[in-house]
Simulated scan of single mutants.
Amino acid sequence: MAGQQVTLRTMTAAEYESATEHREAESVRALSRLMPEEAARERVRNGTARFLPDGLDTAGHHLLTAENARGEAVGNAWVGPDPGQTAGAAWLYDINVFPQHQRQGYGSAILAAAEKLIAAEGKTALGLNVVGDNEAAIALYRRSGYDVTSMAMRKHIQPS
């Protein structure tokens, strides 16, 4: 369904906890393909502590809930400073559409609203990372005009 619109608002404390649990679980799932699960958990926990030292109140970061026209929460996003410190750029750390609202155009709407937010702050670019096998997300970003700026690849080799 094209043409969805969302309004972004700051997450509540409960929404932040839920979003953090979801983001960390998904990140551990992805990283566990590359390292032992406990190492992945540690890396993800350290990342949260590093990038969001004050949680929901971390300066310069927007932890957002997206609501549709009926006021229903349909997803969330985390936008903040570019970790690579690229001049004029912000970073999309996470975007999530809740399962019951997926495949309805809300991903595009949340992304567009996040772009509008950072443009209002004077930013001229929004960067992000995406897991290589997340075909739905890759398609969303391509449809939204995002280009690949780097690519890392890996092949697991069995020791002989």
Rank of each mutant, 00 (worst) to 15 (best):
E38P: 08
E38A: 13
E38D: 14
A39H: 14
A39K: 15
A40L: 09
R41A: 08
R41H: 13
R41S: 10
R43S: 12
R43M: 11
R43G: 03
V44T: 08
V44H: 05
R45C: 02
T48E: 03
T48D: 05
A49L: 12
A49S: 12
R50N: 08
F51T: 12
L52S: 01
P53D: 08
P53L: 12
D54R: 04
G55K: 05
G55H: 01
D57S: 07
A59L: 07
A59M: 01
H62K: 02
L63H: 02
L63E: 04
L64E: 01
A66L: 00
A66V: 01
E67A: 10
E67W: 03
N68Q: 12
A69F: 00
R70F: 02
R70N: 11
G71F: 10
G71R: 13
G71N: 05
E72N: 14
A73K: 04
A73Q: 06
V74D: 08
G75L: 05
N76A: 05
A77L: 09
A77S: 05
W78L: 07
W78Y: 04
W78G: 00
W78S: 03
V79A: 13
V79E: 11
V79K: 07
V79H: 10
G80Y: 11
P81A: 13
P81W: 05
D82A: 08
D82I: 09
P83Q: 06
P83L: 06
P83F: 08
G84C: 06
G84M: 08
Q85E: 15
T86I: 10
T86F: 03
T86R: 12
A87V: 15
G88N: 14
G88W: 09
A89W: 09
A90G: 15
A90H: 08
L92V: 11
L92K: 07
D94I: 02
D94N: 12
I95P: 01
I95L: 14
N96D: 05
P99C: 14
P99D: 15
Q100V: 04
H101T: 05
Q102R: 15
R103S: 15
Q104W: 04
G105E: 02
G107Q: 04
G107K: 00
A109Y: 06
I110N: 03
L111Y: 01
L111S: 02
A113H: 00
A114Q: 05
E115R: 15
E115D: 09
K116C: 00
L117D: 08
L117C: 03
L117H: 09
A119V: 13
A120V: 09
A120E: 15
A120R: 13
A120D: 14
G122H: 06
A125V: 09
A125Y: 07
A125K: 13
A125E: 10
L128R: 08
V130P: 05
V131T: 15
V131I: 15
G132F: 04
G132D: 02
E135V: 07
E135N: 00
A136V: 14
A136W: 01
A136Q: 12
A137Q: 05
A137C: 06
A137G: 14
L140R: 00
R142S: 04
R143I: 01
G145T: 12
Y146I: 10
D147R: 10
D147M: 03
V148P: 02
V148F: 06
T149M: 11
M151I: 07
M151K: 07
M151R: 15
A152K: 11
A152C: 00
A152V: 14
M153R: 03
R154N: 11
R154V: 13
K155L: 15
K155S: 15
K155E: 08
I157D: 07
